[in-house]
Nucleic acid binder design. Sequence first.
DNA 1: ACCTGAACACCGTTCAAGT
DNA 2: ACCTGAACACCGTTCAAGT
Lengths: 226, 226
Amino acid sequence: MPKKVPSVKRRKESLSRERVIEVSIELLDSSGESGLTFRALSERLVTGPGAIYWHIDSKSELLTAACDSIVARTMNAPTASGTPEAIIRSLALGLYDAIDTHPWVGSTLTRAPGQLPIVRILERIGQQVCALGVPDEEQWTTVSALLNYIIGVAGQNADNTQFARTHNLDRASFLETVSTVWSELDPVEYPFARSVASQLPSHDDRADFIAGIDLILRGVAGAGER
Amino acid sequence: MPKKVPSVKRRKESLSRERVIEVSIELLDSSGESGLTFRALSERLVTGPGAIYWHIDSKSELLTAACDSIVARTMNAPTASGTPEAIIRSLALGLYDAIDTHPWVGSTLTRAPGQLPIVRILERIGQQVCALGVPDEEQWTTVSALLNYIIGVAGQNADNTQFARTHNLDRASFLETVSTVWSELDPVEYPFARSVASQLPSHDDRADFIAGIDLILRGVAGAGER
DNA sequence: ACCTGAACACCGTTCAAGT
DNA sequence: ACCTGAACACCGTTCAAGT
């Protein structure tokens, strides 16, 4: 008869905070923000909801942790070396692409002011803004302008994707829809919206995003020259 | 949503889409985003949830409508007359203040890309950007940079307020907390965050916000000179 | 046309009880 | 220390039935 060998080691797959976060990311990626529920999570992890609460505090903490996991690997990825401007562009684009593949990161970022994921971004950009030679008293303004712009785009993009998903549209036909609605607005009250409506479906979101970054960077440079 | 305007005159106190939105705003203002539920709404309106669904399509549509009501009155408020720059600043500040008094507007704005509240803002800013003499092909970039920045700040502010409310803190002690956390970060990995931590509690959010707007406007001006 | 309210199909979170 | 799973206190939404 086999003796009872007291195994210190539990099954390889025993629950851990890391595992909870990992499976949460899978769930979020595959079924969007509404796909992350404690019931779906329990099922995938083959446990009860109580077990999950042993490793995390709440759903919102879990969401932030999952978000931070993506942001951390994005901000630690090697950037193009070059001028501070080039590095800032590279960081911003990396973030843009990460949010493009994980739309839920965009909405989560919006809801985590002052928390770890945001601090990571702030830090990386902040260092480059310093390297740019921006005077001390303008650093915060510059960094927070860049950060808020990025968060704004992130949020809008995330919700565009989310909306398209909910209504079973691809991104192209979603933009087509918005374009049509805008072009039917009152000509007297909404001349500008109507005039840009037509270029909406064909525009390149990613290029627009980086053009905005460049615009802000130009403002920073302009300040130094006065 | 009602299909047609009812032919007979309604009783003053009868339910209407406007009344539903009005009470929703009261609820959102007094108890935050989590305060708006169909049960609370039914109670205040002295009806059942079914009655509410006769006038609105869903909770998200209701939220957008409530948001639009605030945004509309803000964007239609008289602005300082003067240069296009001055008007843009005035519009932005009006929005900032509206979100300060109705934090839920900030988060709702983030979740309504391409929808009416956003279009109103886009339109007002767009007209001034045109007046600024920005060439056609740069108008969209300029307007969306401003818009995304505003939305980014709006979202962060809304969530700061929301967080403070949940944890029963005032804004000052909330910033104090964030400041402390940042100042205790690893000095090697987070030099920038640490360096700005101390100025966090004393800074003027509203002034920072407008400084960001000015930064972007400077970038726009800079583009014209090249 | 408009309203009622019970019922449905979910949520996040807790907790006594187990190992 | 870690896990179980039933139970709790909610949600948004629907719908047969009423006026």
